[in-house]
């Protein structure tokens, strides 16, 4: 029997009032892979991510993270599960009154018994990893958007979670920073076996890091493709998928 998937999603549907964002989305994410959720603006990519981590309620369907169904989990199980996932938010979501080091230290302080100097050393290592070693003492208001995203990743990785969600990691970054981030994601995934779920619409990023992907579409109100992005680029016959991968105007 195959290994249990890290994420199992069955028939997910989300509605805001009368508007259906997506319906009947079903997929599995395997351990250690970089799984990309892609699609055009407004197709519900970020909503799907928030649904998976339990922030947006499901209208129908069930989702399991690391073997636990978050919607049905009790408080204890839920807390334990949240400790094992990390989320990088679209705009970083750094706490404005804390320096970058303190931002990264916060989850470490909350969830481990490490002494303070050890915590800040660990936080420095995380910031060094994403190339923010020099900015460790700065406040979020004093850094650029790209730096905020990288700091957001550092904070998401603070506790070495086995499952990391990244919401638009490369949107709004220059190509060099973006490529560096892609490289970092792949390295971490390969070295530590961390599973990544990445929401993005950056074509180069998708092709550089994605092991597998699903594509959502606004008109179809759901999934229109699933598989290896490189394969999809070559083989897909779906007009929207083809247009997306060939950067054609629909």
């Amino acid at each position: 029997m195959a290994e249990e998937p890290v994420i199992r999603a069955e028939g997910l549907s989300v509605r805001f009032g009368a508007r259906t964002v997506f319906k009947d989305v079903t997929f599995d994410v395997r351990r250690g892979e970089i799984f990309v959720i892609l699609g055009g603006s407004g197709c519900g990519k970020s909503t799907l991510l928030k649904t998976l981590i339990g922030l947006v309620p499901l209208a129908a369907g069930r989702a399991w993270l690391l073997g636990e169904e978050i919607a049905a989990a009790g408080d204890e199980a839920r807390r334990a599960l949240l400790r094992r996932i990390g989320v990088m938010w679209q705009s970083g979501a750094l706490f404005g009154s804390m320096t970058l080091t303190e931002n990264v230290e916060l989850p470490i302080e909350e969830h481990t018994g490490l002494p303070r100097p050890a915590r800040s050393m660990l936080a420095r290592a995380k910031l060094g990893l994403v190339g923010l070693g020099d900015a460790a003492g700065r406040l979020p208001a004093e850094i650029s958007g790209g730096m905020a995203k990288r700091a957001g990743i550092a904070r998401a990785m603070a506790l070495d979670p086995p499952l990391l969600f990244l919401d638009e990691p490369s949107a709004g970054l220059d190509p060099i920073t973006s490529a560096g981030l892609d490289k970092l994601i792949v390295e971490i995934a390969r070295e530590t076996g961390t599973t990544f779920v990445v929401v993005t619409h950056e074509l180069q990023s998708i092709l550089a890091i994605g092991d597998r992907c699903i594509m959502l579409d606004k008109e179809a109100q759901g999934m229109i493709a699933e598989g290896d992005p490189k394969r999809l680029r070559e083989d897909s016959t779906h007009p929207t998928v083809r247009a997306f991968f060939r950067r054609e105007a629909a």
Partner: peptide, 15 residues
């Protein structure tokens, strides 16, 4: 993992 952490720490000097 250890080598990557060593590099990361070297890139982030203590304040």
């Amino acid at each position: 993992v250890i080598e990557r952490t060593r590099k990361a720490l070297a890139a982030a000097p203590p304040p």
